[in-house]
Amino acid sequence: MPVVDLATSSRRDLNAALHALREGDNDMHWRVENPAGQHALACGLDAPVTVEIAGHAGYYCAGMNQHATVVVEGNAGVGVAENMMSGRVHVKGDASQSAGATAHGGLLVIDGNASARCGISMKGVDIVVKGSIGPMSAFMAQAGRLVVLGDAGDALGDSIYEARIYVAGEVAGLGADCVEKEMREEHRAELRELFEAAGVEADPAMFRRYGSARQLYNFHVDNAAAY
């Protein structure tokens, strides 16, 4: 297994080496030591490689990921898995703000807590947070699933479109146009699938579902006087 020590080699070289990988190459399991919170680690990957980061990562770790599996064995900074298209990102510690922002696909699993704006503008990604998420999460979320085993901060799902949010704990408050919705069998089945994918043991019956009331979708001519 290739091991890259960032105490002695550069992040740019690491990312270039990871970008050069193609499906079918021999060395598809990498380990990165001494990340020391550096930014943009394992960004823009486009091959089914596994990258283990042995410590804390800085901003935008695994951003734009396609096909790759990135495991952060510590905390991740702002924008982990931002704009992920596919693949899997697993943060074993906590994640900072805007985890999974604008991501189109793939799975983001956070073992700890995620802070503010988790899943902001998510466009199809699945996000499973074993801890709690901060305020303003899933702001303008368009598609995908956000599953939270802990609590959610204030203004959850503000201006949400079609993403689905499942929370087991307390929700401090819902944002504009976000409402609680009925949990039907199809939703419990969806949760079971996500738990399995994320390696989580949980009971779907513990969860409440939140989504869009669809009142902000269109301009209502009756409201014209308000503008």
């Binding site: 020391a36 800085g58 901003y59 900074g77």
Partner: peptide, 20 residues
């Protein structure tokens, strides 16, 4: 950023958190 803290003694076992 976390980077600023990495050279502090015992940081590996510190409680690292983001203030609310």
């Amino acid at each position: 950023e976390y980077r600023a803290l990495v050279s502090l003694p015992g940081i590996e076992n510190a409680k690292v958190f983001e203030p609310d």
